[in-house]
């Protein structure tokens, strides 16, 4: 069996679903941020694979993936900073505790 585009896209789809499941099911904010990272990396797999098989002469998808990695790093930096700030106030990283505002 040769590994082709379909396999990469399946991998990417499965990774994305695992990430999305984690985001919805996990209660720890840091774990949720990790799951978001899985989702972003799933798109990176898809981008690079699509680029390799659809337009092999160009590097569009790879360049896109580099930008995604860069932006995700910035996003997580701000995310962790906010988690620190909220932990100092509440001594908790459990998302169920952050219910000051509802409806």
């Amino acid at each position: 069996m040769t590994v082709g585009l379909v396999h990469y896209l399946l991998l990417s789809g499965v990774l994305f679903s695992i990430g999305l499941y984690g985001v919805l099911a996990k209660r720890n904010v840091v774990v949720i941020l990790m799951c978001v990272e899985i989702m972003l990396n799933a798109t990176n797999v898809a981008l690079v694979a699509l680029s390799r098989y659809v337009v092999p002469a160009l590097l569009t998808g790879q360049i896109f993936a580099v930008f995604v990695i860069l932006v995700a790093a910035a996003e997580v930096a701000v995310g962790i900073a906010i988690v620190f700030a909220i932990y100092r106030k509440r001594q908790s990283v459990n998302i169920n505790d952050f219910d000051l505002m509802k409806w």
Partner: peptide, 13 residues
């Protein structure tokens, strides 16, 4: 901080 966290998590998703 709660607003920031909710905005960040949902925005990232």
């Amino acid at each position: 901080t709660e607003a920031g966290l909710k905005y960040l998590l949902l925005g990232a998703i």
